[in-house]
Amino acid sequence: MTAAIETAALVKRYGKKTALSDCTLSIPTGHVVGLVGPNGAGKTTLLQLAVGLLQPTAGQIDVLGHKPAEDPAQLARVGFVAQDTPTLSTLSVADHLRMGAKLNPGWDAYLAGQRIEELELDPDQRAGQLSGGQRAQLALTLAMAKRPELIVLDEPVASLDPLARRKFLQSLMASVAEQQVSVVMSSHLVADLERVCDYLVVLADSQVQLSGTVDDLLATHHLLTGPRREPTRWPSDWLVIEERHTERQTTLLIRSSAPILDPAWAVETVSMEDLVLAYMGLGASQHRRDGDLPGPRRAS
């Protein structure tokens, strides 16, 4: 099956500043993928490379099996909602839909009209006078109504208030369920993704730290608490992601497909947030060690 986004040794530099270095990942289709990472991890760069707004400095990127934005057909396959959800401020909502119809051969006027109605947007209102939430909804409508196979959203809710954020994500999920479109959505807020994503990619330090379905990841990660132990020898089928020691207590975040049988450990299930934070920390520590020790990910 072709991947939604597949990269190999992808590099993007702006002058001397490296935004993405040697990034290799494969994001499958058929999921709502959350791309999460700290600010400056290269999320926006990766997504803009995927929709063809940026060209790679080196390496490969394929989206649905084609080069990004290589021709109008490829552009039609991918919908994009950019960060801050830009629109044309002097054009009305209705003008935006008309533009969408003119610029996209697969335009679904019915879907667009219905969404605008449901959102109670005034078709005659200029986009510049819409609230941030309404503008984001308009941008999402444009991206949805072109009937793409993949929709890419770059921090679409970052600037919205909590209510608008929830409404946006709800309408995104409703559309996704109806249209069977793959979604890749970035955010630095795990809570946003937790509600909607079934697949998680953690990008830190321009490397993929973690990638998999949310169900798998939550089932194979465990938070263990027990009396203090020396951090030397753990069972060989454990992959220790994070360890913390106090005078009396040791806390571990481990990845293991086998159940934890040792009764000395109190086992808790992990939340997505725990997971993301732990793996983001991994990216940072790898960076500090700069390759002199193999990180846990590579040991697996």
């Binding site: 803009q48 929709v51 063809g52 707004l53 934005a69 021709d71 109008p72 057909a73 552009l75 039609a76 991918v78 919908g79 994009f80 950019a82 801050d84 830009p86 629109t87 044309l88 401020s89 533009m99 969408g100 610029l103 996209n104 051969p105 697969g106 941008a139 444009l142 991206a143 072109k146």
Partner: peptide, 17 residues
């Protein structure tokens, strides 16, 4: 400048057009 190029260039027309 306004950033709307990111919306326009991801419609189904190339930026050359």
């Amino acid at each position: 400048e306004a950033g709307s190029y990111r919306m326009l260039w991801t419609q189904s027309i190339t930026r050359s057009r």
